[in-house]
């Protein structure tokens, strides 16, 4: 049984160090601009911080994977090119890309730089993955979170590259890289600007009864009662009214987080080479707790023991967790 890599998020240099210290084999992070899919205010790395992060990780035997996983629009390619060049110069161990133009740039200009295909590319068939491997030399693919373990096993048997799956964190129902809900409401794109629900347009209005109404721009998409759990302020997790229903309902998806702890043995057996934890926007406390727990669980599986994790549900969105489509296509 091969030892899968534990790939952990870092939105700040302190989070990177926390992830490495907690047992991450690799840490993924991005620059402070639209070149990555977590382009949130106050988050991410300057080139100097990236250099220091790479040194810290390498000194402790861990890798740094640079997320350049948004999609350039016409006339803006320089930003993505510069991010890739900076990553190569600073010694990152791989670049995670979604756009075929960026993939081609990495393959041509930095042929020795390891290339990973982001979940944002939504490559979900062996044919699509083999194309990326053949054309750009992709070494690892992160498939969208819509596949069952059985499907992952089948795909793995038909592709000539590594496979990495998310095991914990935010769980989007939308096929990654193809969601336009934020763009529709705000004019900014999750996929091209790296901003899902830009914070500048998120508003929370507290009512006298303790309820909280959530708006994105001019659109109200949820109202949490005083004792209800909340989720991220994203349209896909909102509750909506319709004449056909008596009460508001989650039209797309409930606020819920992915937790595949119980599926770790099956995923390892299926040939998954790397496990990814979502949450570059989360705190050091989240990183420390989730990473250390999954580190221990993976090591337990490899030692032939039952994986044991602390209860992480307090860290989950809406205080709920699921194995999602990894368990069944009918998971909703």
């Amino acid at each position: 049984m091969s030892r899968p890599e534990l790939v952990c998020p870092a939105g700040t240099p302190a989070a990177l160090r926390t992830a490495v210290d907690a047992g991450a084999d690799a840490v993924y992070c991005g620059f402070q601009n639209a070149t990555n899919a977590r382009n949130f205010p106050g988050l991410n790395f300057t080139p100097d911080e990236m250099a220091q992060g790479v040194a810290y990780a390498h000194d402790r035997g861990a890798k740094v994977l640079l997320a350049v996983n948004s999609f350039p629009t016409a006339g803006r390619f320089d930003l993505w090119r510069d991010a890739v060049d900076a990553g190569a110069r600073l010694g990152v161990d791989a670049v995670i890309v979604a756009d075929i133009g960026v993939a081609e740039y990495v393959a041509e200009r930095h042929p020795d730089l390891r290339l990973h295909l982001s979940v944002q590319a939504a490559a979900s068939s062996p044919e699509a993955i083999r194309y990326y491997v053949r054309e750009f030399g992709v070494k690892r693919v992160v498939p969208p979170r819509i596949l069952t373990v059985a499907e992952i096993r089948q795909i793995k048997s038909e592709i000539p590259c590594e496979i990495e799956t998310f095991v914990f964190g935010n769980h989007g129902l939308m096929v990654e890289g193809r969601c336009c809900l934020t763009n529709y409401v705000t004019g900014l794109s999750t996929n091209m600007d790296g901003v899902c629900s830009p914070a500048a347009q998120v508003h929370y209005d507290k009512g006298p009864d303790g309820s909280v109404t959530t708006r994105l721009g001019d659109f109200t998409f949820d109202c949490f009662g005083p004792d209800e759990q909340a989720g991220y302020p994203t349209i896909c997790k909102g509750r909506y009214t319709t004449p056909a229903r008596d009460e508001s309902y989650y039209a797309f998806e409930e606020p819920v987080s992915l937790n595949l702890a119980e599926l770790l043995p099956q995923l390892i057996e299926a040939g998954v080479e790397a496990f990814k934890i979502e949450g570059r926007q989360r705190s050091r406390a989240y990183v420390r707790q989730v990473v250390s727990n999954f580190r221990a669980a993976i090591d337990q599986v490899l030692a032939g023991q039952e994986p044991h994790l602390d209860d992480l549900v307090a860290l989950t969105e809406g205080q709920k967790q699921t194995v999602g489509a990894f368990g069944s296509k009918k998971w909703r």
Binding site: V212, F224, P226, D227, E228, Q229, A230, G231, Y232, P255, Q281, R282, S283, A285, Y286, Q289, A314, L315, T316, E317, G318, Q319
Partner: peptide
Amino acid sequence: SDGDALFFSR
């Protein structure tokens, strides 16, 4: 503590 988790739990 994680700010998002505190937000989720209200």
